[in-house]
Write a protein that binds this DNA or RNA. Structure first.
Length: 673
DNA sequence: AATCCTGGAGTTTTT
DNA sequence: CTCCAGGATT
């Protein structure tokens, strides 16, 4: 958007005299404000780009922002600009301050799965606890970490012996991470913030480096992220944050929307600028959205408006069953596409829970409507990627036992559970890593010859790969490694069809290719091969360079996604399905009395629509096998009647509805024939 | 090691 | 109902 800024946007971009909060409603051009402000700082304020940092929550947002900045500022001037996720910024800080943090080069970043298995191990060994609780303990630890609670404090505040046990596990977990030279995702924020609290010199270095900070989606920050922001800013006030309290939908994973209000207290000179002009939706859609969200309490009042015209009324379809609902949406898309002369990609179907997509998929397939589901298994969660990453992680960090266990028998090396258990036992006793234990002399006393031989062979092989990687061309060494283990052959053997195996192998090459990219892009003459590979792998562990992969199917397809996944996106025609009590608002949220967040979720859904919005519900729905009568969502009652056309609210028999569906469909079929 | 059976649960998700 | 994990069975 190189177009003109509106007056409010203009103020937001040019205000640099102090901390600045931009309350940016949905579709009000917040990304423009951030990118234009970066350009303004560089071009008009002569601030070197390397002293500016912009922080977002997702890699995708960061990428998009980088692109938009580079269109505004010429490449040379933008050199050194930091646009990254919170986690990536944290990673960079940790990397630079390794020695002050007591970590060694080549540390590992544990993902949720790794962290979970580590916890499980701890709970089995030290606590003799029910492993069903692993998930809950993991959540609790994440909450503690993002809420800046140290194990010590957790222990002190424990109200029961149960809580005490959890706090102790938390402590052991942190110690174990250090032993593995590993950090988890929360540590990427927590450790820098901890360092800055205790080490004024380090803080000074980074305050020197970052002289202006911009934060996107501020309502999604958690306590430790806010802490980090405050530390970096100090008393200089060189801060712009952009956010929308009405779009806070991640409180359940630690986000603190009240961080927006806290800004006013922590920065008394805070300048608050509201962006209320919406460039996305019709006035009618905004009117409905405004009415809905007005039912939530507000610290900041905000009313979206647009000059895109009133637009069509919204529609609300009440179908007999969830089957009829999906069928209706599918046939609607066919008719509307023809009537409005638009593309499949102009339609999005939004829903509360992933399971709601299943029926929809069936119906869309049946009508041969191309669609795309966002979510599901990400590129990074794929087994083949985790396997190869396991090798890379072990290459970079020999103490990474999780990686060791993942790959020791992938492909098969005929090392049985008995051998591994003995190895693990030995390693725990000596307090060395599994890989290191393989080479210890004492091991032969506890292991059969064959098992020992195989372990030694593996260890020797890996150190050869490591040497090769450090002394020669790293990417070639990694390719050789993958060929050496005949991963391809293993894939073909262990996959149902050759085409699937081929695709998986493609993914592996993509992964290796992105390492090549990463090494080229971050060419650091001073760093050794080892250091460069370490850095590339740790970036990969944040799936930084990889998730663009998923975007390449932005062809002409209907978009299916959860309400959560839809945040930040927009579509000409939106279907919001399942507008029922217990679904939206979700049953659990009703129980937890968390209606406000559900209302915001609905608000996010409504404000995705540019031209038309159609909501739907089913009168009955199968729940865990049995048919249940549903209740219309309470949110529907909060919307203005005069802007919504209702259909299916007079008693309509199932036969009639089906007939209607069939009629629409056959009339369309004629058009095709 | 691979497969079958049983029981329990059943939101949202990024890094 | 449908999916998963984990145990039991082959």
């Amino acid at each position: 958007m190189a177009n003109k800024l509106n007056p409010r946007q203009h103020i937001a971009v040019h205000y640099i005299d102090g901390p600045c909060l931009v309350l940016a409603g949905a579709g009000s051009g917040k990304t423009s404000v951030i990118t234009r402000k970066i350009a303004y700082l560089i071009q008009q304020c002569d601030m070197p780009a390397r002293h500016i940092a912009a922080v977002t929550f997702t890699n995708k947002a960061a990428r998009e922002m980088k692109e938009r900045v580079s269109k505004l500022v010429n490449g040379a001037a933008a050199r050194g600009l930091t646009v990254s996720t919170f986690h990536n910024l944290g990673l960079n800080i940790i990397r630079r301050e390794l020695k002050h943090l007591g970590y060694k080069s080549g540390f590992t970043i544990f993902d949720a799965e790794d962290a979970g298995s580590l916890l499980k191990e701890i709970m089995l060994k030290d606590g003799d606890m029910d492993t069903d609780l692993v998930q809950s303990v993991q959540n609790q630890i994440s909450n503690w970490k993002s809420g800046l609670v140290e194990p010590q404090q957790a222990l002190e505040h424990a109200q029961s012996s149960g809580e005490q046990t959890w706090a102790l596990i938390y402590e052991r977990y942190n110690k174990a991470l250090r032993a593995y030279n590993a950090v988890d995702f929360d540590d990427l924020i927590r450790l820098p913030s901890q360092l800055f609290a205790t080490n004024a010199e380090a803080l000074g270095r980074w305050q020197q480096r970052i002289r202006y900070l911009l934060v996107d989606e501020y309502q999604d920050t958690n306590s430790s992220q806010y802490q980090l922001v405050k530390q970096l800013i100090g008393d200089r006030g060189a801060l712009t944050v952009v956010g929308d309290d009405d779009q806070s939908i991640y409180a359940w994973r630690g986000a603190r929307p009240e961080n927006l209000s806290l800004l006013k207290e922590d920065f008394p000179t805070l300048e608050v600028i509201k962006l209320e002009q919406n460039y996305r939706s019709t006035a009618r859609i905004l009117k409905v959205a405004n009415e809905l969200i007005a039912h939530n309490p507000h610290d900041f009042d905000k009313t979206l408006w647009s000059d895109l015209g009133m637009g069509e009324p919204l529609r609300l379809l009440r179908c007999s069953t969830e089957d009829a609902e999906s069928e209706r949406v599918a046939t609607e898309i066919i008719t509307q596409r023809l009537r409005r002369q638009c593309k499949f990609r102009d339609f999005a179907v939004l829903y509360r829970g992933n399971h709601q997509s299943r029926l929809l998929e069936l119906k869309l397939q049946h009508h041969q409507i191309p669609y795309n589901i966002s979510g599901g298994t990400s590129f990074f969660a794929r087994a083949e990627i985790k396997d190869v990453m396991g090798y890379l992680r072990l290459l970079v960090n020999p103490t990474d036992d999780n990686a060791f266990l993942r790959i020791i028998n992938t492909p098969r090396r005929h090392i049985g559970t008995g051998t591994l258990e003995a190895l693990a036992h030995y390693a725990t006793d000596r307090e060395v890593s599994l890989l290191a234990a393989c080479d210890e002399v004492g091991l032969q006393t506890v292991l059969p010859k064959k098992g020992l031989e195989r372990l030694r062979e593996f260890s020797l092989w890996l150190s050869r790969v490591r040497d090769n990687c450090h002394n020669n061309e790293p990417v070639a060494a990694i390719r050789e490694m993958v060929e050496d283990i005949d991963y391809e052959g293993w894939l073909y053997q262990n996959t149902s069809s050759p085409t699937v195996a081929e695709k998986r192998m493609d993914n592996v090459w993509t992964l290796i290719d992105s390492i090549r990219n990463s090494l080229e892009k971050h060419e650091d003459e001073t760093a050794s091969n080892e250091e460069r590979v370490n850095q590339a792998v740790s970036r990969l562990m944040l799936q930084d360079l990889l998730d663009r992969q998923e975007e390449e199917d932005v062809t002409d397809r209907v978009q299916l996604m959860t309400l959560h996944a839809s945040k930040g996106l927009e579509f000409p025609h939106v279907y919001l399905i399942g507008m029922e009590e217990e679904l939206l608002p979700h049953r659990n949220s009703i129980e937890e009395n968390n209606i406000e967040e559900e209302r915001r979720l609905t608000y996010v859904g409504i404000t995705r629509a540019q031209k038309t919005l159609t909501m739907s519900l089913a009168a009955t729905r199968k729940q865990f096998g049995e048919k249940v009568d549903t209740l219309a969502s309470r949110f529907l009652a909060e919307l203005p009647d005069e802007d919504i056309e209702r259909e299916g609210f007079a008693p309509v028999s199932k036969e009639q509805l089906e007939k209607k569906g069939a009629e629409t469909f056959s009339s369309i079929k004629k058009l095709f024939d």
